[in-house]
């Protein structure tokens, strides 16, 4: 992959993302035409002439659509880049952000928060904390047996940790009030961006962007980690350190995505596969391109969830319904991309 081709691909996909985001701002129950939007942006940014619809646009764009679009972009990019990072770290094309139990842990934390408190920020903090606890438990189980196959033990630790928190989640559901708390937990677990507010989105955008950019910067190390631990060490990589940093970044971003929008599956698994098939496995291009295309995918999926039916379908259901057939196609063509 030449330098020019890399830059072309990245700028083309970035342009596509911005275009789709702009169109998403226009579409909805109250459609906005392009000229009005341009006038509104002119008014907001450069003090252009006022129009009496701008108070309404303030509400629709700033309070509803913009936070949601930004959140879709952040979460899509987070899930796709952590998926690609996990696949390289565990030398396995079939792992995804859920592999170390982070999604199950965060889901349990959020459900627990809904059970014990009315405050939404308690829910978010608990989701984040238990996402990290689940990964910590997975790493602890994985390090109990120390030998050269520690990667497999770590994945096994993730499976155990994930199962534990899924069981604990069931306990919370069982004791939750079936008329108020239980439906709230169930709907939240289906994944949705409806809770997005501009202030919250801007707040989480800082750690999420740091995590995404951190993982993108680690691309050349992911190439080498995928050769296996011993070869990576012999080539001069501090394997334990690189893996620890990558796990922290991937856990941080995927926990925050659960905090903001519940469980959104399949993005972290299918997007890196599609990119790998299209441009090859080198992580120096795979990482940034996965982040951008993941953002586009989630933005489109959320638009479908908002617009396609008179009732909004939870986003997690949409990504699964789109993701599963794509994954079957990917599996069929996967042999060219990985041995």
């Amino acid at each position: 992959m030449t330098q020019i081709k890399t830059i072309t691909l990245l700028s083309a996909s970035m342009t596509a993302l911005i275009m789709i985001a702009l169109v998403s701002v226009l579409l909805g129950q109250y459609p906005i035409d392009f000229v009005t939007l341009m006038g509104y942006i002119d008014f907001k940014l450069f003090g252009g002439s006022v129009n009496d619809t701008y108070a309404l646009l303030d509400n629709i764009i700033l309070q509803i659509r913009l936070p949601r679009i930004l959140l879709a972009i952040l979460i899509g990019a987070s899930l796709a880049s952590s998926g690609a990072a996990f696949q390289a770290m565990f030398v396995n094309p079939l792992v995804s952000p859920g592999i170390l139990g982070v999604l199950a842990g965060a889901a349990f934390g959020a459900a627990l928060g809904m059970l014990i408190s009315e405050q939404w920020y308690i829910v978010q903090i608990l989701a984040f904390i238990f996402g990290f606890i689940a990964v910590g438990l997975a790493v602890l189980i994985g390090s109990m047996v120390t030998n050269s196959r520690s990667t497999i033990m770590l994945v096994l630790g993730g499976v155990i940790s994930g199962s534990l928190f899924t069981a604990l989640l069931s306990v919370v559901k069982y004791v939750a009030d079936p008329y108020s708390t239980l439906p709230a937990i169930v709907y939240w677990l289906m994944g949705s961006l409806t809770m997005a507010d501009l202030h919250g989105v801007l707040l989480v955008s800082i750690p999420m962007l740091l995590g995404i950019f951190g993982m993108i910067m680690m691309g050349k190390y992911f190439d080498i980690l995928s050769l296996g631990d011993e070869e990576a060490k012999a080539l001069g990589i501090n394997v334990a350190m690189v893996r620890a940093v990558a796990i922290v970044l991937a856990t941080l971003t995927s926990s925050l995505s659960v905090v903001m929008a519940g469980m959104i599956g399949w993005v972290g698994l299918i997007i890196p596969h599609i990119i790998r098939m299209a441009v090859g496995p080198s992580h120096r291009l795979l990482m940034p391109l996965s982040a951008i295309v993941g953002a586009i995918f989630l933005l489109l999926a959320d638009s479908v969830s908002r617009l396609a039916f008179s009732v909004e379908i939870p986003l997690g259901i949409i990504t699964s319904l789109i993701g599963i057939p794509i994954f079957i196609i990917v599996l069929k063509n996967a042999r060219a991309a990985w041995n």
Partner: peptide, 12 residues
């Protein structure tokens, strides 16, 4: 270090 030739999961 030159290892024995082997398969790599991703086709670089």
């Amino acid at each position: 270090y030159i290892p024995q030739y082997h398969n790599v999961p991703f086709n670089y």
